[in-house]
């Protein structure tokens, strides 16, 4: 066995090299959620250290899932800490979707969603992912935090509400705005082949 392998208390073991090899992926995952590369470095370093030193991996499931569960908990700790001292309201003023609808709340012709065909075909297109990440990063900070906790960290909305002290109705509004803005950004900048703003 590799000299870096650390025995666990049960049947599994934690291979330090294997954990370290996930670092790049962990960094990407964390930076996407926190939007702070320096903080992401610290969190990933802590998560890797914790994974190697605690050695509680019991061999069931994949090592990667277990390491990412540790990382996920560390990210949630940071978000929880940040939400104690909010610097802005979760419901941001400049992002309502009223401009897309007419007086009867039906789509204006200029804003009506077009047919994207089979958008999954774009998953092999590097340009799609560049624009997708730009669109994600264009979401307002607090909107993004809620949206990414739900969709990227995979928390249930109830858990997000509990962690951020949000009501259900506020969370639904935020999620709706995030999805609508992301959809619109993709449509304007990728689907219609327009220039990035």
């Amino acid at each position: 066995m590799d000299k870096n392998a650390v025995h666990a208390s049960h049947s599994g073991y934690v291979d330090a090299e294997q954990v370290a090899s996930m670092r790049e992926e962990m960094l990407r995952f964390t930076t996407l959620q926190l939007r702070d590369a320096v903080l992401a470095e610290d969190i990933v370093h802590e998560a890797i250290s914790a994974a190697i030193s605690t050695a509680k991996f019991n061999g069931r499931g994949s090592l990667k899932s277990w390491v990412f569960a540790i990382l996920r908990n560390k990210i949630i700790d940071v978000i929880r800490e940040r939400s104690r001292y909010p610097t802005e309201s979760f419901i941001e003023d400049n992002d309502n979707d009223d401009e897309a609808f007419d007086g009867r709340d039906h789509w204006k012709k200029t804003h009506k969603p077009s047919d994207w065909g089979q958008p999954e075909k774009n998953f092999d297109n590097e340009q799609f992912w560049v624009i997708f990440e730009i669109c994600l990063n264009h979401l307002p900070a607090n909107t993004s935090r809620v949206f990414m906790m739900r969709e990227h960290l995979g928390l249930e909305l109830k858990e997000v509400c509990r962690e951020l002290n949000l009501s259900d109705s506020n969370a639904w509004v935020i999620m709706h705005r995030a999805r609508s803005q992301l959809r619109k950004c993709l449509e304007n900048n990728y689907i219609r082949g327009g220039r990035l703003s």
Partner: peptide, 9 residues
């Protein structure tokens, strides 16, 4: 279309 696109996201 909106419904399909939200699922795609």
């Amino acid at each position: 279309n909106y419904n399909k696109q939200i699922a795609f996201l």
